[in-house]
Design a protein around this nucleic acid. Structure first.
Lengths: 147, 147
DNA sequence: GCCGGTGGTTACGTTAACGTCAACATATTG
DNA sequence: CAATATGTTGACGTTAACGTAACCACCGGC
């Protein structure tokens, strides 16, 4: 597509969103495959505009993709991620989705993440303990050798 | 199997590990399926003793299962979990696995977890921001209505 | 005018992590 | 003794998340 340049003008468009990016750019920028990006789109997580058949990603799309990858990094499924993304995106869709409902969903999502964070902290503590234990054994071994 | 009771004496066994548990007990205790437990065993994450064909889980096995589930809760794959479990279990296997090597692996695992933790903190921060934003909009709406 | 690069759309393959089901053994209980 | 509970081993099905392959189209260039 070569979004940053030719293949057709698109003219007008209220002059905003100066930088539109092609799928290859996005892929390289985030270090993932084109297939993955298209897959996320199939799953409804991304919805880039189409310019002459090609996908054109805006800054917002990039942010979403970032959130998707971060979500994956913390072990969330694409379904869960979609769920969270819906909390961000255009809360105007469907006209008027109550704000307090949205805040409620966000609280749920935050609670979920907080729980995961606690689990991680537990594991970190366990590992630190095991580490210390091994360290003690190493020290003991050294003393034995020295004797 | 009914591990806690009959079906054969097993006698001796150096009198330790008083409480052996059956697979169903474990499943209920941790709220998972029998199939899952057997699956973890197939994957080498668990290795219960066999008593008359049935699986007998010791306290150690339970601890391992706990670690497995916690690992899953933070989004780790079974392969990653196996990796971490190997840091705990019987570091005598193979005779003499160097302790400093083990400490190294633990450090890696801890770094990995710390990274995940940071990701989660980032998401929490983002969500908190979105939440605050909605709250502000709600306040604005109320003021409008009141006017 | 053909090549390579970029992009697009099916369609099928793959791995992980189990679920589901069948078929069978054993053991306690009514 | 038959029912019921608990256990075992396959074998096959399923869902998620992509990877891979095949094939088509357009654009710029030599």
């Amino acid at each position: 597509m070569k979004t940053g340049s030719q293949r057709n003008a698109v003219a007008s468009e209220s002059a905003n969103e100066a930088e539109l990016h092609g799928i290859t750019e996005l892929a390289r920028e985030y270090g993932i495959s084109l297939r993955a990006i298209r897959f996320y789109e199939d799953k409804g997580l991304l919805a880039p505009r189409r310019i002459n058949g090609g996908r054109a990603y805006t800054r917002r799309d990039r942010v979403r993709l970032g959130l998707i990858l971060r979500g994956k990094a913390v072990g969330m499924s694409l379904a869960e991620i979609e769920h969270i993304l819906s909390l961000y995106g255009e809360h105007g869709e469907g006209r008027g989705r109550q704000l307090d409902y949205l805040v409620g969903r966000i609280d749920e999502a935050m609670a979920e993440l907080a729980s995961r964070k606690r689990h991680i902290e537990d594991m970190l503590a366990d590992l630190a303990e095991a580490r210390a234990q091994f360290k003690r054994e190493m020290a003991a071994k050294r003393r034995t050798k020295k004797a």
